Simulated assay, not measured.
Amino acid sequence: MYEDPQLVKLFTTYTRDAEAIGRHLGRSYAEHTRDAPLLVATGADFALYPGGGRPPVVEGYRLSPKGFKELTGVSHLGPAVASLVHLRTRLGDDVWRPDAERLLAEVSRSRTANSAELWRDLIQVEAFRGREHEIADMIDYTCVATARYLEKALADEEYLTAETLRDDYLDGGPVPINHMMVATFFLAGMDISFRIGRWLRSQNLDWSRTMVLIAGRQGRTTAGVTWNTSSVATMVLGTSGHQLPLERMYIAPHAPVFATPRDGDLSEVAALEHELRAIWCSTRATVELGELMFAGYPRYSPEGVRFPDVSDPAVTEVSEMPVVHSPEDMHSLVTRLRVVLEDPRQLLSGAVVDLAVAALAEADWDPAKVIVPGLTGVRYPSS
């Protein structure tokens, strides 16, 4: 393929080349904002670069916190059982049987390990304080219901169908498993939002100056790359009291990320500051060319998330997360569970994070005052 060297040189004068005009613009912008705080979120941690050459501080929010994996393991029972149904009825794969046997064994062991004392004395999630008995009862009930369903399916594989999955397991019983999934997703989101909210508030950030970058992969490969599909973006906006201008938060799925620091070693985090600031600043500098070049034409204005209303039975399809009218609005809440599965843009963890953040803010950041849908006021009967 022929390329004219002179015209290619013109191309690289503005872009690509290390000394291109666009690179100069980005570097100059970074120099003018070197004292501004930069908040970076990866798939597992937050890092705050205070600016002015001061060292970063890091707070984990996803995989490292106490209780996350234990609670999420229970949350995943619904999709796990549904996957067995899918393997047998849609794909005709006999692997469903050994998988069901393995899941049954793990459910039995988990039920034995679960107790209010485990959650109160060993796992000790601060945001769950006072709810340990409720959580233990919910997990016990879920393990019993799951075991019963799996035992029936293993005894008679014809029982393992989409109809029995919904009627006898997900929507059936004294408390539907769907309600448990809402509760566990909400609890996880409340815990993360409580901890990160407290940490961010302790930093005394000036949100009008703060630069926010959500870097790298968030959850599944296709998810969380827009403002209204990123639970991390929702959490930051809610924690700031919506003082952070939406236009100061960028989602950069291809940006480099640091590994979760170990033993207090922040060298890798610190080493990335220059590159991460350059990404934010070069993006912002280009955005500001719009007003310079096209004043008088309609400007772009970011808008918040719009939620469709599914309370009308005539509504059978949605393209965004539905609005939830109250903690008892299980139709909308379970619809959100369906949306995060079917919409590849959504983070599975994002089903109710916005609701958890809003509820915490309304309760003055006291998790004990928050109504947890699917848990508060719900009696999960024992076996």
Rank of each mutant, 00 (worst) to 15 (best):
A18R: 12
E19M: 11
I21C: 02
R23Y: 00
P37F: 08
A41C: 02
T42Y: 00
G43R: 01
G43C: 07
A44V: 05
A47K: 00
L48F: 05
L63D: 08
G73T: 09
G78V: 15
V81M: 08
L84H: 05
H86Y: 15
L87R: 14
L91W: 10
G92Y: 06
G92V: 12
D94S: 14
R102C: 13
R109Y: 12
S110P: 08
R120F: 04
A127F: 00
R129L: 09
G130H: 09
D137T: 06
L150V: 03
E158R: 15
A162W: 10
L165W: 07
I177M: 10
T184N: 13
M190A: 10
I192R: 15
Q203K: 14
W207S: 13
V225S: 07
V225L: 06
T229H: 07
S230G: 11
V236L: 12
V236D: 00
V236S: 03
L237D: 06
L237W: 06
H242C: 12
P253D: 09
P261F: 02
S267L: 06
E268F: 02
E268D: 15
E275A: 10
E275N: 05
R277F: 09
S282P: 05
R284Y: 09
A285L: 03
G290M: 12
G290L: 14
G296C: 00
G296S: 01
Y297R: 15
P298G: 01
R299I: 09
R299G: 14
P302S: 07
F307S: 02
D312L: 04
T316K: 13
V318Y: 09
E320P: 02
V323K: 11
H331G: 15
L333T: 02
R336L: 06
R338V: 09
R338Y: 03
D343E: 14
P344R: 14
Q346W: 04
G350Y: 07
A356V: 05
A358I: 04
A363V: 01
P367N: 11
T376Q: 09
G377H: 10
R379P: 00
S383Y: 13
S383Q: 14
